[in-house]
Amino acid sequence: MKVGMGRSVVNEDADVLALRALAWTLADERRAERLLAVTGIDPAGLRARAGERPVLAAVMQFLLAHEADLIACADAIGVAPDALARAAGVLEGAGA
Rank of each mutant, 00 (worst) to 15 (best):
M60S: 07
L26K: 07
A96K: 13
P81V: 03
A57K: 01
D69R: 08
A21S: 15
L56M: 02
C73L: 02
R47S: 12
T25A: 06
L35M: 08
R47F: 12
A57W: 02
R49K: 15
L19W: 03
D13H: 11
A94Y: 11
V10K: 15
V9N: 04
V59L: 01
A85V: 13
R7A: 08
H66V: 08
L17R: 04
L56V: 02
R20H: 13
A74Q: 02
T39A: 05
R53V: 08
R7F: 09
A68E: 15
A18L: 00
A85I: 09
C73G: 03
A80M: 09
D75T: 14
A58F: 00
E52G: 00
L84E: 00
A87F: 03
G95H: 09
G51W: 01
D82W: 07
V3I: 14
V10G: 14
R86V: 04
R86Y: 03
L56K: 02
G45C: 06
E12M: 12
A87Q: 03
A50T: 04
L64N: 10
D13F: 05
A50H: 13
R34L: 14
A27D: 15
R34Y: 04
V90T: 15
T25E: 01
D42K: 10
G6M: 07
R86W: 04
R7G: 03
R34E: 15
L36T: 04
L17T: 06
I41A: 07
G4I: 02
A76I: 09
